[in-house]
Design a protein around this nucleic acid. Sequence first.
DNA 1: AATAAATCCCCCCGCAAGGGTGATGCCCGG
DNA 2: CCGGGCATCACCCTTGCGGGGGGATTTATT
Lengths: 210, 210
Amino acid sequence: MQDQTAVRIIIIEDDRTIREGYSFLIGETPGYKIANAYSSAEQALKKLAADQPDLVLLDVGLPGMTGIDAISKIKAILPHVQVLMLTVHESEEIVFRALTEGASGYLTKNSPATKIIESIKELMKGGGSMSANIARLVIRSFQKNVNSPLSRRETQILEEIARGKNRRHIADELFIDHETVKSHIKNIYSKLNVHSRADAIRAAREGKLI
Amino acid sequence: MQDQTAVRIIIIEDDRTIREGYSFLIGETPGYKIANAYSSAEQALKKLAADQPDLVLLDVGLPGMTGIDAISKIKAILPHVQVLMLTVHESEEIVFRALTEGASGYLTKNSPATKIIESIKELMKGGGSMSANIARLVIRSFQKNVNSPLSRRETQILEEIARGKNRRHIADELFIDHETVKSHIKNIYSKLNVHSRADAIRAAREGKLI
DNA sequence: AATAAATCCCCCCGCAAGGGTGATGCCCGG
DNA sequence: CCGGGCATCACCCTTGCGGGGGGATTTATT
């Protein structure tokens, strides 16, 4: 049977209706099978080695250990498993934490069934997948603020500061005197209302100036 | 007619066949219309204000000004226009530059027609969109290296250093003596084979240790 | 028992960092 | 035409941080 080579999927989701819905959906899709389904991360982790899933559908809002914390534990047991977050949470912090922990995809729960199946396929092909609203968050995180109070040169120097360079190194790299660098830094501090490199970096990151 | 309220799209793409293919595809889709099509960014920029597009389909590999450089110039004229990159380039550097410059989506040219239309719809709804291979690049950029030579504490301290904090601040935040911080930093330098904060930050970013 | 991690301690020296004040030339906009 | 932002350079000052050199202890983990 094709079941022998089907992609093995487990689901960790505390809402029974949703869990069974996903199970049915995947069970109906040729080439994919549900290896198991759990209502908590703790239960799933105990059986993970036996289940040998290729992919984990993971909810964020689990009782006990959260889905976020579960990601790294799952990956510690099965390093090559794909983790697809499926959740209502759209806060920036949760999304970015999920991605840094090792999730390969992030879908919001209003996603249509076809999108879920499509995402699973993309992940198994080595791709990534995000809902459009999540993609928007992620893409925005790359973009700088267009209304920066800093001049071009000041921004450039602040970027070097954020790389840990000292005044003399910055001066050498930009072919200017280190006294000039000092002046720029003083102006940057004044504009950002800070008095140290650490505060300048923090202010710059918060305001997406660099 | 619905044409009066249709989403206005312009295409900047030097390959005539592809340009006309997209034009046809969009022209056939209700609610969307091609306001204009250009084979270079320079030409498009001259007419941009008159075209008043809601969305720009932009190729990276244009003759003359590249698509990457065109993004910020387009956004300078029409700040709220959506820019969707449609290209063969998948190099990390180009993808990330496009996103930092302000693109809202990034599709590779092997994308099926339905994916292109779907992405346009998502962008106009305020979402983002990426091909799966691009999404994987982007998601990976958030993830840290699992084989870090640094201990947990060392990683933590290196992160603070990358925020520009000095030894005393780090000590206060972690409730340890500043001499301890110093020792950790010495060990970090030794493990990374560097001799300064700047080099440590560079090495850490390159190796995705932080 | 042995190794790594995390903690703390002392020495040294140089110069980087932050603050103050001021000057020059350039170009833009009112 | 003049003010102001920008970029450049200059000199003065004080503090103490940064990096390098030693070594020691405790805990956890293997």
